[in-house]
Nucleic acid binder design. Sequence first.
RNA 1: UCCGGUGUCGUCUAACGGCAGGACAAGGGACUUUGAAUCCCUGAAUCAUGGUUCGAAUCCAUGCGCCGGAACCA
Length: 567
Amino acid sequence: MSATKPEKNRDDSAAPNFIADIIDDALSANELTRVVTRFPPEPNGFLHVGHAKAIFLNFAMADKGQGSFCNLRLDDTNPEAEDDKYVRAIQEDIEWLGCDPGERVYFASNYFDKLYAAAVSLVEKGLAYVDSQSPEEIRENRGNFYKEGLDSPYRNRSVSENLDLLQAMREGRLDEGAAVLRAKIDMRHKNLNMRDPLMYRIRKAAPHRTGETWKIYPMYDFAHPLSDAFEGITHSLCTLEFEAHRPLYEWFVENLDSPDTKPRQIEFARLNIGYTVLSKRKLHELVEGGHVEDWDDPRMPTIAGMRRRGYLPESLQAFCERIGVAKKDSVVDVALLEHRLREDLNAHAQRTMAVLRPLKVTITNIAPEERYEFEVPVHPEYEELGKRTVTLSRDIWVEQDDYMEVPIKKWFRLAPGKEVRLRGACLLTCDEVIHDENGQAIELRCSWDPESKGGTAPDGRRVKGTLHWISEEDSTSATVRLYDRLYTEEEPNSHEDSSHLDFLNPDSLETITEAKVHKELAAEAPGHRVQFERLGYFCVDQSSTQDEPIFNRTIGLRDSWAKLAKK
RNA sequence: UCCGGUGUCGUCUAACGGCAGGACAAGGGACUUUGAAUCCCUGAAUCAUGGUUCGAAUCCAUGCGCCGGAACCA
């Protein structure tokens, strides 16, 4: 993008956020002096825009009060799911979003010793026991929504027996599934999470940061509240599905020996966006099923995908602020996100002209050796960004879509005999059309009005159509990838009988290999964003090279003509 | 059949007993060397039924809808 970044006015009306309200109230009532939050992703996939909402929330809350901060905690308590490549991706994505945990990057696995000590303490207090029932028996005896649970026959083992067994679990002397450590709470509790929840399970041969040192791994419900307490978290923000876990969260915090703080769990509604899917499981399906190229495919709602697509982090942030934080389930209109994106792209992207589907135009009253140079603003609203030069010569390209053999009503573009403006250059009239054997127009023979240099009619005549164009000598060929929404269905996962994969948009990617772009654009670095005038916003792909430039369409311009033409 | 959460324009939300407001989307218009941007205008909602009150989206009651919850996942 351009070196200067003019600031556009943005609608900055206060973001609705009930959690901010809670914290602000506590701060002004002096019930609180600082706010400590954490973002706790499990490293088992890439982060998506729903995580971005949580990241911005946690970092924004940690901006209140004095001495507040937000930790990044990789929640690696399940050795079967996690991978280091995700750890790296997560850190990169958070940094790109503009959030910085600084030195405060932690792993739940760093707390395994403290967690174990806490478990021993709970056993000693008679609040935890080793259960030797089989997984099936445990499930059966938990009861269900309508039926109370049954106490395990091992529920009243002595403290010393429990301690011995726990030690045996830890040392790997027991097989997987042979025993678990459970909190002793209430098998008849209305909330199934409180029916003696599991704290530890045995897992062997686990590739993990901790290597072979552990044979037992803590469950989320146990590890999470304690990790929060260890880190001095004040507000543990999570999504709605953990609501039923809150009593258990509080139980563990209450029964911890001298916690630094008593963190409070607050739940908010996760983000859903129309025409996309935001669950790691489904994103895994897209990647593993080969429906997209990878986690950073520009069609993916992952942070990495959106980055590659050409999104700006501030657009994501503005979007998240605008939709607010609430407890109501919702599906946000994707147009809200696109609006924020276009808002920033319009303000920041410098303009250029490119032709996606070239149609040859010969300007018959320009001699082959003649050249005319014109200066066009880099940005129509910010003159300070300077000018770009375009060269007009006999051979140029225009967009196939800008020619119509038999024009429909209100068609302002090229058609036999019609006059249009070449943006920044001149007025041009279509005199003759050359067709191929199929009757397809393959060349337009036109004449320009030499008095209209720059594009202004000498006699003041009105020419409504202005086309983008590029001369043969200014241009080089490029690959352009046009992305459309990944799904054809606004709520791809709301259909009980079908998979989200049934609603994949077969046209979500269209690759154009013979587009014409300005030569100097090919030298731009990956990530560079521009507007191809009248077409949309594009960015240089990470795999682009000077010899084989590749552009990704971030998003098209709003197109009121498309709506009109449909009528 | 249980427990928890949640219902305001098409969408996301505001109004904390006192004029139902904003943004996006939609429609219309102005301007325009991007059918972009910008500007102006319009239409559009309190889940239902009772109750309390001078006054209810807001408080109470009942009902209904939607979401979540029964992994040795998080």
